[in-house]
Every structure is written in structure tokens, then in C-alpha cells.
Amino acid sequence: MGWRQTYRLRLQRKRYLIRAFRKRREMKPVVNRTALIRPRDTLVFVTARNERVRLPYFLRYYREMGVDHFLFVDNDSDDGSREYLAEQPDVSVWSTRASYKRARFGMDWMNWLLRRYGRGHWCLTVDPDEFFIYPFCDTRPIRALTDWLETCAYPSFPAMLLDMYPKGPIDAQPYHEGQDPFEIACWFDAGNYTISKNGLHQNLWIQGGPRARVFFPDAPFAAPSLNKIPLVKWRRGYVYISSTHMLLPRKLNKTYDEWGGERAAGCLLHAKFLSPLSAKVSEELTRREHYANSREYRAYSEHLSGQPDLWCKWSERYINWRQLEIIGLMSKGNWA
């Protein structure tokens, strides 16, 4: 890498840090329990809007995984999310009414909180509909993973987004509070993902899955990115540049092996295609706060009117992480 490129990336990184700094006042603390965070705690960072129904299971899932503290940014919810979160003993909540889009889809807020509270901790940055799984997640807490990553001197851990969907129309089965979303949306696409490498930032760009298959069959370039690096041992100066798809400095994006071997990797099970989706899509369309002029949501709404079924006879039913490892969507690497 020439000094020109190094300098360009450095400027980019600084710019995002300054953005995060400028946007910090958009958030007002509702409850700040960050004093409870102990030195080696694992933290979860989330931006949420009107996710009250999903929150109880979300919190339970990550608590069972061994996460110690949650840092939420509530983006103007009106369904009681904020109040619910404020009651939780291990949650700190900030609230904002500012534009999600103008905060780079929440990433400016996340970057600020990560910089302020994440330093020196393993930080997991996810959406309320993303459920992190990693090798041995059924028998080992997340601390085992982060301890192991630390001995390997890996500062970040990748987890590809795996879109999960129900069989039949998406809104057919209602989701109840506290329910495991993957009781309903338990199907996924096993082997239609395409990967290319981003030369500048060194991350992999992964697309495919049911969203490319059903919503973008004629415009694959526009299909959503599925590569994510949600788990990072945060240090001052790190910054997420585009959702959790990539970071700077770019060494954090090199979570893959280029010489034929496999590094360890997890998955983020994505419970997006779950009722009530239609209502959410129409709301998001009027808000126009999403990526690339909300093209994803426009594509959804075109199809949702026809009650689409993402399921097909080749869909795979989710069992556990070992199944995903055998299929080749994630890997144990040299962790045994």
C-alpha cells in the first residue's frame, strides 16, 4: 500500500470519527448504567426503532450467551421500547429523534458509543433482528470465543448475515413477544452466495441469499451486502464505515484466509422476514430513512403486495451451528 492510499484511508477514518463526534449530542441518555461495566465485560451495541415485541427475546438470547451489558440507541420509538429497555438492569439507553439516515444509518451514533464505552472491550454491534452464532455457541459462552481470539491476536471476528424466512407468506404466522423467531423463520438458502474482494478496504463483499434470489434477480449488483464484522476488540481510533460491513483501519477487515486455509467465522441469523413485515415496510417507505434511497424497501413492497413466499423446495431448515459449518457458511478454523 502506497503512502497516498494510507493517507487517504487515514483521512477517511478521521472524517468518520469527526462525524461521530459531531453527532454525539443528538443522543440524550435515558438511563446510563455504564458505570456497571467491568474491565473484561463483553458489550452489545444496538440501534433500535419500534422493536418492543422483539426485545425480550433479543435480550434473553444475548444474556444467555454471556454478554454483560447492552448499549441501546433508541431512535424515536413510540411503542414503549425505550421504557422497557430503561427498566432492564444491564441496559444503558440513549434516545434520539434525529434522522437515522443522516447519522449514516445509525453508524455515527454507534461509533460514538463504541469510542466512548467500547475501548478495551470485545464489542458486538448488531441490529435487534440479528442473532449472533459462532462455533461451539451451544456449549461455550462468548467469553471463550473472545479469549481464544485474543490468544490468536485476531482483533475482529466475521459473521455473515444469513437471511432466515418462514415457509409460506411472511405475514402468515404472527410473532409473539418472547418467542424464538427461528421457530417461525427457520429456513435459509444454503449455497447461492457470491463473494468478491474490495481492493481498497480489503473486506469481502458477499451477496446472495433469498433477498437476491427473490427481490433482485435482475439487478444482482443492488442486492444487499451480507458480509459483516460485528465482533471487535475495540480500540480508540477504530471506526465502522458502512454499517458493520467494514471498518477502518482496514486490517480489521482481513478476517479471511487467502492461502487456502479457513479462519474461524460465525453467522448472524437475520430474523427480518417475520411478521409484521408489511406494516414495517410501508412505514419505512414513508420515512425514507434507509440505505440507497430505501431501494431495498421499495423492492420488498413491490413483492409484498403479492404475498411472496421465500421458501422453495431447496431451502434448508436451520438446526444448529454445526449444520452451517458442514454446509460451509461458517467455520471452526483451528478452534477445536
Binding site: 466475521p158 479471511y256 487467502e258 487456502g260 479462519r263 467465522a265 461458517m330 483451528n334 477445536a336
Partner: peptide
């Protein structure tokens, strides 16, 4: 087996943590 997975990987698999360069695919 774990070490072999890390060094050689599964032949013919292209995924988020195994993206070999040209001619390094095993």
C-alpha cells in the same frame, strides 16, 4: 484436524473466511 482445516481448508469452498487467491485454492 483443526490445524489442517486452518491451513488447507475444504477444497472447493469459497466462503466468508476462506477466499483463496488464484492458484492457492487447494
Amino acid at each position: 484436524k483443526a490445524v489442517e482445516r486452518r491451513l488447507k481448508g475444504r477444497a472447493g469452498l469459497y466462503m466468508q473466511s476462506r477466499f483463496p487467491r488464484k492458484d492457492r485454492e487447494n
